[in-house]
Design a protein around this nucleic acid. Structure first.
Lengths: 209, 209
DNA sequence: TAGATTGTTAATCGATTAACAATC
DNA sequence: TAGATTGTTAATCGATTAACAATC
């Protein structure tokens, strides 16, 4: 175990390993070698062993890896058993879609509340989650621990909202707005879902086939 | 211009350049050097010049780049002026959110139709786009040119739907389901939005701060 | 002209792949 | 034991950064 400098590339492969192992569990596969796992995922056995060796020794010579055990270990590395707390800011179509359909629990997050400016939705619940008015946000943050804020608000207000939230102590953002959020506070972690970038990448590829 | 082997890393930076240049245009900035652009985007001037040189020579020694011109050029490279045609399959919360809010036109896509199994939504329009019943899908594909299909359907049916669509000639997918779609047809391009992977990455980072 | 900045070649750095001794 | 497969070290490959001649 040499847990210092894990590259971004490795970190971004972890969820894929986790996903594949979930599927292998479901299929009832008990053990798997780096070679067969690589075949299923279309990556080299070397890379899998190299990646895993960043976090520990999970296999056994001559045997391979126990699927369930490796699944648990990677889940642990990803922090799915940390019970992180999350709130959603902006209950428009997208915020609503996430509340309704996304399996936050599978990623180890509990969705404690959502906030919106529109009185049409505040006071209601979506999928059991209370929608609160925006002016209760600061009070909420003072009295609750919030690990991640999901930003599903209009672009125009994204950076100022983020700045405000960082001031209030928020250190994790799942950003769905099409802006590059920045923060001078180094512990702040921002993960972006840039729909537009993704579609433009696809556009490039179909245009330059 | 040496347009052969553009790496994935370069392609994925193009939309970010495009986005930044859009903003610079809006700010009224006329010219910019690779150095200043790099400062704004937090990447090196070398990388910018290296990236751009994959596609042509857009700058001028001693001057830098004309913002508007470079914006147009990169848009062209990304194919935003190709008027690609797109349909959405699955008008649940997420499909609905995309129809309602996402600026497909800015990426050069026109959304021609959406499909769903539920009679509760078929026959209606969302944001001007007609929602058609699923059994009209094959007929539609025979009579219309479709460059990209957006998959906002349940995981369980994603791969079989994709297989079917590939059989019908579809070659581009914007996949929102949490599965790794595969196709044996090499021209098929798949771009994934893996919400769960993204959130797990964030989970890792806040857990290992 | 002098200063600035490009496009490109060369150097460096990091990530992926291959090889192999250790060992179950 | 013999075969299989690990974790890790070394080799290769590719991507990023630095340097610089060309030139606006």
């Amino acid at each position: 175990m040499k847990k210092e400098n894990i590259s971004d590339a490795v970190i971004r492969r972890l969820p894929r390993y986790y996903r594949q192992l979930t599927e292998l569990c479901a299929r009832g596969v008990v053990r798997i070698s780096s070679h067969s796992l690589g075949q299923e995922m279309n990556i080299t056995a070397s890379q899998i062993r190299q990646d895993l060796s960043c976090f520990g020794e999970f296999g056994q010579q001559g045997y391979g890896y126990n699927v369930e055990e490796l699944h648990t270990e990677i889940g642990h590395i990803l922090g799915v058993d940390n019970n992180h707390h999350l709130i959603i800011i902006g209950v428009g179509n997208l915020g609503h879609a996430l509340l309704q359909n996304f399996g936050f629990a599978h990623a180890g997050f509990s969705v404690d509340a959502a906030f919106d400016i529109s009185p049409a939705v505040t006071g209601t619940r979506v999928n059991g989650v209370p929608i609160l008015p925006m002016d209760e946000l600061d009070g909420y943050l003072k009295s609750h621990s919030v690990d991640v804020v999901v930003l599903t608000i209009p672009q125009a207000v994204a950076q100022s909202m983020a700045d405000h939230l960082v001031d209030q102590g928020v250190r994790g953002f799942w950003n769905f707005t099409n802006v590059e959020l920045t923060s001078s506070v180094p512990e702040v972690k921002i993960e972006n879902i840039h729909f537009a970038d993704s579609l433009l990448t696809l556009s490039y590829r179909i245009a330059n086939r």
